[in-house]
Design a protein around this nucleic acid. Structure first.
Lengths: 194, 194
DNA sequence: GCGTAACCCTACGCACGAGTAGGTATGCTC
DNA sequence: GAGCATACCTACTCGTGCGTAGGGTTACGC
């Protein structure tokens, strides 16, 4: 039943999706949807939660914390793109729909913040291993950029059904890790004085 | 008047925004909004177009095509983050709202594709200058990732009113250019064989 | 056979908001 | 000052869709 909701929400968006359509798609009648899952808002939150936790679990399950940073990043990315490839509708709900709708944006932002924190922690760990340190805010921003780049590629993947998730993950590593590794080695870019 | 519309759309989203509220915020009555700008949908498209072209102009004006790639990237990024910092509402409409709403997503995707193409062109140009070449699709994906990372940081900026756009642009360069420069020099990352 | 309980449906009330009809004030022409 | 045009408003219609009331059907106990 949640599957039907996710499907409809992903295609129509929260407001444009009608409970009638969701009910019809699920093969039951509207009062049943209300009986089992409450109001439209609660239904959407339920979708959000399910897809969100599924995704986080997929990533956490793949990126064991005792691996070296590049290995963790690679596995996490692979799991993430794999998830998006297999749950395109769920991803669309999370990324495209929930973002703009006021009541849910916070919910999503929290989840995203957790992800950013994990990435930032990974970078920090790797940095300390190299005997370096960066201001926490810089780390957070870099992590933010990496997460954003990844989400963007995921979106690209969602729109290209025949693309290979694994290959996309490799491409992402090429952009992300090469840059991050430079940073870890103390190489930085400075603006030209103009 | 468009300012009022952008403001309301950015806070509420397309569906939740009421024409009454937009009219009130603009200091006029609803029939006037209809007289000047047509239906709600047309109004939204008008907002989208204005903010979109403003943004593209800001970027295009800063990143002259005869500069070296890193300089172009830097100036483009600076202009972009400057724009977002100055038009947070407009950015929210473009990035958070228009994306999920079916009738407008295409419009936006086109604009985004232009941006990706510009970035990809830039990378390609720099690559040829180094005597190298990469498959077009790889270039596009890398460009996509860079644009995504930038958008993500822009979003971060929009949520942190006291953050400095220029500094954010510098941070973005650190992530993007260091990685891209590696790629340009032929360094690539390969997945471990497991 | 009749009560009853679990289950699910059709069909509705009601609120909200897009778009409009018709009226009012202000200024301009002759 | 009468006629007219422009600019704007208040107050309405009407469609849409959320949430629910009340009724039908099946299965089981007695």
């Amino acid at each position: 039943m949640l599957d039907a909701a996710v499907k409809v929400f992903s295609r129509r968006g929260f407001h444009a999706a009608s409970m009638d359509e969701i009910a019809e798609d699920a093969g039951i009648s509207k009062p049943m949807v209300y009986a089992y899952l409450g109001t439209k808002e609660e239904l959407f939150v339920a979708c959000l939660h399910r897809e969100g936790t599924r995704m986080m679990q997929a990533i956490a399950g793949a990126a064991a914390p005792d691996l070296p940073a590049d290995e963790r990043l690679w596995r996490g990315l692979r799991a993430f793109f794999g998830f998006v490839g297999a749950h395109r509708d769920g991803w669309a709900v999370l990324y495209r729909q929930a973002r703009g709708e006021q009541p849910f944006a916070g919910e999503l932002a929290t989840m995203r913040a957790r992800l950013v924190e994990v990435v930032a922690g990974m970078l920090d760990h790797a940095l300390r291993a190299e005997g370096r340190e960066i201001a926490a805010i810089d780390l957070e921003v870099v992590a933010y950029a990496l997460v954003g780049a990844t989400e963007s590629l995921a979106d690209w993947l969602a729109d290209h059904p025949d693309a290979d998730p694994e290959k996309t993950a490799t491409r992402m590593m090429n952009v992300a890790w090469l840059g991050a590794a430079q940073l870890l080695h103390g190489v930085t870019w400075r603006p030209p004085a103009d």
